[in-house]
Structures are given as structure tokens and as C-alpha cells.
Design a protein around this nucleic acid. Sequence first.
DNA 1: AAATTAGTCAACCGCGCGAGG
DNA 2: CCCTCGCGCGGTTGACTAATT
Length: 314
Amino acid sequence: MGRPPCCDKVGIKKGPWTPEEDIILVSYIQEHGPGNWRAVPTNTGITIFLCSKSCRLRWTNYLRPGIKRGNFTPHEEGMIIHLQALLGNKWAAIATYLPQRTDNDIKNYWNTHLKKKLKKFQSGLEPQMAGDPTAFHQFASKSYGESSKNESSLRIGENSSVYASSAENISRLLEGWMRSSPLQPNTNQINGISNHDNKFYGNFGKIIPNFENSDASASLIQCYRPQKMEHVMPSDHELEGMLVFDHHHHHKSSCDSSQKGSESSGLIDHDKACFEHEQKAKIDGNPPLSFLEKWLLDESAAQVEGAMELPPIF
DNA sequence: AAATTAGTCAACCGCGCGAGG
DNA sequence: CCCTCGCGCGGTTGACTAATT
């Protein structure tokens, strides 16, 4: 079908996204919820804007609350390897198991890191092992299983408790952020954040009503200060709070799954994908996700592997 | 210090699918 | 049925940065 019509219009700007555009997009989504992307460019009141497709992409891959940036943990790495072996290059499906990561992120990580690792791994294998498609998978299982012991909070089966943590965390964090804003002259460096930075982020609050207490604001701030934010909101505890947004929608989407069509509740792509994937899997005769989850998260996954017909990995 | 190469990742593009007319 | 539209996905590109020469 090609490019969406809105992209062909003369005067439609293409990326990269500016902070101002991000703010407008976030504030719009805050008000209307994600979805109905077609309407976003026209309703934002800006004539020169990015096409709806770009808006959706920017939101899902960058601005959406709860997105974790930075290095992948061994646990996440292991999960990706597991899931890639199971599902193939179904990055969206894989991303449903890593709620904090986007499909784009996972795809990039696979292409830039894991592919290389795999190559290295295979070249370092004994000839007979190199031909064994499960070898890398087993290698991943090991690291995945070991890291799992220390990262139980990331387990899918316990996601609900993770997500159920209070959103107040974000508010508190943001309060701290906004308080140390430009009007306080002598706070040159707070947690590595300069006055200039404070001024910049403090201004978000002026532009967007209730910005300080919004999930999106946390995400937006994180986007623009990825390194320094590690000092400010790095902990899993605090990140958990950000996930409340996702969980709320996820729960909603699961409960409201009977509501067909383009409901304005603003289903997040990820939630939709998760639900659809599960339905699809049931239809296709693939193991339902609940089973996969169990299998994936079972620390004795290696034993199960033997019982389960795995598709060739590569 | 400058030039070159390699690595990373945000963003774009093309395609397919489903819904609605 | 057929067509159009909106959306989502996977592959790819290209700008930027870091590392190396």
C-alpha cells in the first residue's frame, strides 16, 4: 500500500522528532489516549507535523511510559534467545514478554548484539556441536536460568505484583525533579543534572497541565536524559511505578477484549498485540502463551526442551 | 589531531491484514 | 465480492557516536 496518504502531503515534515513535537504528542495522548493515530496530526493543531504512522511509532518506541532503556540484562537476553527460537522473528510477540522493551529495541538488540554473539558462539563450538541447533539455546538457558535466580521480580508470572506498585513513585520522583527546577539558583548539579536541564524539564510542566504527575512526563523526561536519569530514577522499585500505566491498560484490554473495534479507550499496541497473539496462538494450534510462559520461566526449562519439539533455531 | 571504520539505534519503508462501506 | 482506509509488523536505512588507525 505504500506510504500513508498524510505522508505524501507537501509540507509534512519528517523526523527527527524535536522536543516540542514530543511534548505536543504526549499531551495529546494524555488527553485522548493512544490509538486513532490518523487523527493525531490533524488534531494537534500543527499544520506541519509528522504523519500518523510516525506518531504511533514515536509513541510506542520512545515516549510510552514504562519503557526501559539501556543495557539488556542477561535475563532479558536469555528470554529473547528463547523466544526467538520459539517464535522466530516475531518481535512484537517477543516484546509482549518483555513489557519494558519495545519490539524495535529487541529487534535492534538481536541484530546488533545477539546475532554476533551467536556467530561467535557457533564458530567457537566443536564441529559436531556447531550443527546442533539447540546448542545456543541451551547456552542461553544457562545464563538465563542463572540470572533468573537474581531477578525474580522480572518474572512474568509475577508481573501483576510488579505492575501493581504504586504510581505515586513517579509522582514523587517528578516532584523532586520539578522542585529542583530553575528557580532555585544555587543547585548547580543535582544528581548530575545541570541547571540548564532543570530549566528544560521544568518547562514541561508549564506547557502540559498536570504534567508533573503524569506517567508520560516521566517517560518523556527519561527519553531526553537517558544517562543522567539513571541517577535519578534508576531503581527497579521506581520503575515499577511507571509500569502501572501499562498494567492498567493491559488489564483493561484483557477484560474488555469482547469490545471489538476501535474503542477510544486507547489500547496500547503492546496490549493489543499480547491479546491478539494469545488468541492467534490458540487458533494456530501453537502452545498458548500461558503455557509458553510457564515453560520459559521454568528454571528446569532445559529438561522440558527434550520433551518439546523445538523448531530449528537458525 | 584528523581521518577512517565500526557499532548503535531511531526512524523510515513496504507489505499484509482486518474492518467497514 | 471488491475497494479503501487505518493500523501494525518486520526489514532496512542512515545519522550519529565511539573506537581505532
